[in-house]
Design a binder for these strands. Structure first.
Lengths: 250, 250
DNA sequence: CGGTCACTTGATCGTCTTCAATACCAGTGG
DNA sequence: CCACTGGTATTGAAGACGATCAAGTGACCG
């Protein structure tokens, strides 16, 4: 088990570019954020497991006994209302930590979108580890702060942006996902369904579909297939999205 | 300066009840979260300042040079869109830390709702302090995690709840604000305007007003003055709000 | 080839917004 | 004491954006 998860960790790190050391978005990746020796120590106390597509491997409200470190695949994080309305709070991939919940229960659910492999370790064990490696704790704090900033941006989106603006913001965010420093990608391959996007942006499937075709008709994007989007007019999208982290001139 | 802020800190702590040591919501207060000796050390490197009502003492997009620790008063945190639309991400009072931003610029603005007094200290200084006191860092992590959970709850509210549900959730949240463990207060005195509430809940002033009167007509609340709300039917509000952190039965 | 699932597109509906008028309250100065 | 002012809240009427309801298309797969 230990050796298995250890190998995953190594694979993870070797996949990541070694440049971009001083980059902002580097903090977003927990993988990059942890020293090699810490990662080894981390791997030693984890148990690796897998979740098939559709499996909810973290259930909101259940006892938050474990921390998770995704090593492969993608998952959606979401919260539900009693009548089934769903809000997706994020999509997470390799390198992401889950389970920072303070209370004794998880604050959200996590469901595998692709087959997901993750390392799991108990809270007490993490506590010990954090005591031994303050650097790890520092990094975790950075990660939490990064997510907090992202959450605030999402609040702005959900509370104040129109449908087009939300979709523009979403596409732009997707275009820089996993691109540490360089230029944003123009070709996106979405791993989520329209329903996922809708529940992430606080809209409905139909509105997502309509708005996408509208953006296509206005030549801002192309949609070669339902999973692929090509950004044709990046500047216009940025403008629509509300400047994308601009400093307000008002 | 140092002695001044130190006195504030002492005042802060003495105002807080010493019970409720094992309580969940204790983590939300940074004041409670820091050891006495750490607080003294903290106070030693801070400079205390004040902001009059309406003063924006943190500006989104500006260089994030300082951390802030509110010691008196209340402030609204918000983000703006280029055309002036505002999303309030939170209301913060004494004990709250600000400036956890990872990037080199603040991710939000902060404006004094009442006269605000705060201790300010530079990031490098905080870094030194965190190195000396791992316990402080651990607490900060808890605080960040708590805020993250709150942010996710707010995303659910903004993305998926109706106007009544949002207002019900808001009133209930207000009723437990500053009440660490005990029963929620029935009598609320709101420090924010309708406009603030609107920008916090992703609605308009008019909708807030209408929805409040609707709740009053349905005998769920009373509104003795524009700033005061009395919760008459707590259970009904909880039901409206969507169970309030319930574990979804679906 | 039939079935399922996801997506698209159209028509209608409802909630919240927008626009507008009025009421309210505190502070200020005549 | 009362009129005046500016900010804030309430209430009404009309409008818009997105939701809902519904039908149809296309891709994938047994």
């Amino acid at each position: 088990m230990a050796t298995l998860s250890q190998r995953h960790v190594v694979i993870e790190r070797s996949q990541l570019p070694d440049l971009c050391v001083g980059c902002d978005s580097r903090a977003a990746s927990v993988c990059n954020a942890i020293e090699d020796r810490d990662m080894a120590r981390l791997a030693a106390i984890t148990t690796s497991s897998e979740a098939p597509v559709g499996r909810v491997f973290i259930q909101e409200g259940e006892s938050a006994d474990n921390f998770f470190n995704i090593t492969l695949g993608t998952a959606r994080l979401f919260k539900l209302l009693p009548d089934g309305r769903r809000q997706i709070t994020g999509f997470v991939g390799p390198g992401h930590f889950l389970g920072l919940a303070v209370s004794d229960t998880y604050a959200f659910s996590a469901e595998a979108m692709e087959p997901v492999r993750f390392c799991r370790f108990s809270r007490p064990r993490l506590r010990v580890l954090l005591d031994d490696f303050p650097a790890l704790e520092k990094r975790l704090l950075e990660v939490a702060a990064t997510e907090l900033v992202a959450a605030q941006e999402q609040m702005l989106l959900l509370g104040r942006k129109t449908a087009v603006e939300r979709l523009a913001s979403f596409l732009l965010a997707q275009s820089v996902m996993g691109v540490p420093c360089g230029h944003p990608r123009a070709h996106l391959t979405l791993k989520m369904t329209r329903g996922d996007i809708a529940d992430y942006l606080g809209l409905t499937i139909e509105t997502i579909s309509r708005t996408l075709t509208r953006l296509r008709n206005e030549r801002l994007i192309d949609i070669p297939s339902t999973t692929d989007v090509i950004i044709r007019n990046h500047a216009a999208l940025v403008n629509l999205a509300g400047g994308l982290n601009r400093s307000p001139t008002a």
